[in-house]
Design a protein around this nucleic acid. Structure first.
Lengths: 293, 293
DNA sequence: CGTATTACCTGACTAAAGTCAGGTAATGGA
DNA sequence: TCCATTACCTGACTTTAGTCAGGTAATACG
């Protein structure tokens, strides 16, 4: 463990908890229990499916039902059948509910403003920038990596977005039939593996590994969603795959890349890969790298 | 209001609330209500006076009493008379209580560590630095300024620390009798005023204003505690005093300062003061400034 | 010295938050 | 077609959190 950093994080938690408490208190000022206020807020002007509300707020189905009945009784919300599945229901704000929602919204704005207000112009800039950093990095910290079959629905989804991006970025375009010298079933243990990176459960990146021979692994399909770039996801996936390759008995990892993917090349160099001679006939590859494990 | 900044603050709040929620859940994992856990934690290895606990956690006296009885029943805490005032009582952890406390402490550490762990070394550095910034600036945002009598206990305390600092920093030392051309009763409305800056209720700075004649105000006793420097407290106090001076009918504000107080001089210049000729015979003054309101 | 105040305790209460075991209607799949 | 599953609802319940009105002993103050 890393003591001074942990101390800083804990002290940050305490400082921020107080602010959050202030927000909750201001929410209570409208004379409604926090649970109802939160639900009203979460339904929002667009409305929301009950299932979505339940999972987002982590509510028991019976409990949600009861709070909704109370909001309905107050004339703030109406719950109707959703066309499609007649079991599902959809909550919408009434006009009165929209007014209440706007009031809660204003309270949040006010609190945020009360934080900015006493600060100087430069203080405000620094605070907002630091908050953005914290948020970004907390997000990065909650990205998880999971090994899973390369033919799962989400894996396919990642791969589709990966190939889309190749088609956009390669000067020469990208034809999947021509470029794919490898089939997805090579990414299944023990011949290889497939890793998906997720942020709050939704996929934001993937990477694949296959054993070329007993002591050589190849990394392919390395992709990070634009929304998650700059958070170190790629290097985490790379290291994870290297560790797995080691377990598979690999002594060397190699990979190829297109000249258009500059940031990938600098990532590989940063992670200790060195450029080598062409080792395959991938028509889209311009650079070949390898690293001894 | 400042829209994009407010949006950033609100989004930060949401992101951080989730983390805090995770901490509270981990606290619940020890099978004890959050209220008891918090109290146990707050008592700490050193123990704590009941009054201090009540004010720190914002608990009703009856409620506190009940939670303490429950912790006593679990054998975690003992409450004894404090020597001195036989009405006050003091809570201490038993050996078993200390073990529990350490367990909660470990949970907090674990959560902090789980945030750091997935990040790269530079990511960790950036996160911790950004958290420190946010914490600092949130602190700055909660500094309040109050006008109050210059002879209150806390005002005297500020002034004592101010004079101490002068004695330390002036090359020629500082003798209060010689330096004080002004008495504290000149800082009472409508002849003048006295402002105290507080962070969480404790004084961290002061500044005084007195009217020299009907249209000229003088600023004196400008001091910021070392712990609160760099947060813009001085310029906030300065602006507040200028606004009050305006209300008093002042058209010009002037002040003097010693050559050793470099940061004060640059503050005055930054705030629009220009250096003028000597206007008093303060033996410790080396520079004189004024500003038209 | 008597009285007001303080520091804490007790008992009686309420509201909010959440859990659990069924129950109903719609839907999907064999 | 039948049966398991899903999406939601209802009623009965518990725990947690918190408030309020007294009450007691110690202390401060005029």
């Amino acid at each position: 463990m890393d003591n001074s950093r942990i101390t800083q994080i804990r002290s940050f938690n305490r400082a921020v908890t107080r602010r959050i408490g202030a927000l909750e208190e201001s929410y209570l000022s409208r004379g409604r229990p926090l649970g109802e206020a939160r639900l009203l807020f979460e339904i929002g002007p667009e409305g929301a499916a009950l299932g979505a509300l339940r999972s987002k707020l982590g509510l028991d189905s019976g409990y949600l039902s009861r709070i909704l009945r109370s909001l309905e009784a107050q004339g703030l919300v109406s719950v109707d059948k959703l066309d499609g599945d007649a079991r599902s229901r959809y909550a919408t704000l009434t006009d009165k509910g929209r007014v209440e929602h706007a009031a809660y919204d204003a309270l949040s704005d006010e609190l945020a403003n009360s934080i900015l207000e006493p600060l100087s112009e430069t203080g405000r800039d620094r605070l907002v920038a630091a908050m953005a950093d914290v948020e970004r990095l907390l997000g990065a910290a909650s990205i998880t990596l999971d090994e899973e079959p390369a033919d799962s629905a989400e894996a396919r989804q990642c791969l589709a977005r990966y190939f889309d991006e190749l088609a956009q970025r390669f000067e020469e375009g990208f034809d999947q039939g021509k470029g794919n010298t490898t089939t997805e079933d090579e990414f299944i243990p023990p011949r290889g593996t497939f890793v998906i990176a997720r942020l709050d459960g939704i996929p934001v990146g993937c990477a694949a590994l296959r054993m070329m021979d007993a002591t050589t692994a190849e990394i392919k399909r390395m992709w990070v969603s634009p929304s998650a770039r700059g958070l170190g996801v790629a290097s985490r996936m790379l290291r994870r795959l290297e560790a797995i390759a080691r377990d598979f008995g690999a002594e060397t990892v190699c990979l190829d890349t297109n000249r258009a993917l500059k940031e990938a090349q600098s990532l590989y160099r940063r992670e200790g890969y060195t450029e080598i001679e062409r080792f395959n006939d991938n028509p889209y590859a311009d650079h070949w790298f390898s690293k001894r494990l």
